[in-house]
Simulated scan of single mutants.
Amino acid sequence: MAAGLRPRSGVAGKVLYRVDEAITVLGLGRTALYELIRSGRLKSVQEGRTRLIPARAIEEYVALLERESGVSYGKTA
């Protein structure tokens, strides 16, 4: 591994998730996950013919959902 590059301690410690794994992590169906990717709400990358979802993209999507719902954690009213 190059100096200064370390895997992020993302969701469950993985850096990239296959589609089936992301479906399980997010609790979504396959069609819903691909729609999120198509709409740009969930970022993904492609390695050869394999579609992968970065852990960071999952974290960003969850943060987006929290912002949209007005949920805030760790802040007192």
Rank of each mutant, 00 (worst) to 15 (best):
L5F: 14
P7N: 14
T31L: 15
P54M: 06
I53A: 04
G10M: 10
A22P: 06
Y61H: 02
R56A: 10
V11E: 15
R67W: 12
V45W: 08
V62D: 10
G74M: 11
E68D: 03
P7Y: 04
V71Y: 05
K75S: 15
A2V: 11
A55T: 00
V71H: 04
E35I: 01
G40L: 02
G40T: 03
E68R: 06
S39Q: 11
R30K: 13
V15M: 03
G74T: 06
L42G: 00
A55S: 10
G4Y: 09
S72Y: 10
A32R: 01
G10I: 03
T50W: 14
E35V: 02
R6M: 06
V11M: 14
L5H: 15
R41D: 08
A12N: 12
R51A: 12
S39T: 03
R18W: 02
G48S: 06
K43Y: 05
V11Q: 13
G48N: 07
G70S: 01
K14L: 14
Y34P: 13
L33Q: 10
A63E: 09
A63Q: 04
V71N: 06
S44E: 03
R41I: 03
P54E: 03
R38F: 01
G4C: 09
L26I: 01
R30L: 08
P54K: 01
Y61V: 00
P54F: 02
E21Y: 02
Y73W: 01
A3L: 04
L16Q: 02
G40N: 07
L65M: 02
E66H: 05
Y61K: 01
I37D: 14
R18E: 03
E66Y: 11
R6V: 05
P7M: 04
V11T: 15
T76V: 15
R6H: 10
V62R: 10
Y61G: 00
V71C: 05
G4N: 12
P54V: 04
A32P: 11
I58N: 10
S69Y: 00
A12Y: 08
L42Y: 02
G10W: 01
E66V: 07
E47S: 05
R56E: 11
E21A: 12
R41G: 15
I58G: 12
G48R: 08
M1W: 05
D20A: 11
E60L: 12
A3Y: 10
R8E: 15
R38A: 04
R30H: 09
V45S: 08
A2E: 13
A55D: 00
G74S: 13
V62G: 08
E21W: 06
R56K: 15
E66P: 15
S44G: 00
V71F: 10
S72R: 08
Y34E: 15
G74F: 06
E35C: 08
G40Q: 03
G48A: 02
G4F: 06
A57Y: 07
A55R: 01
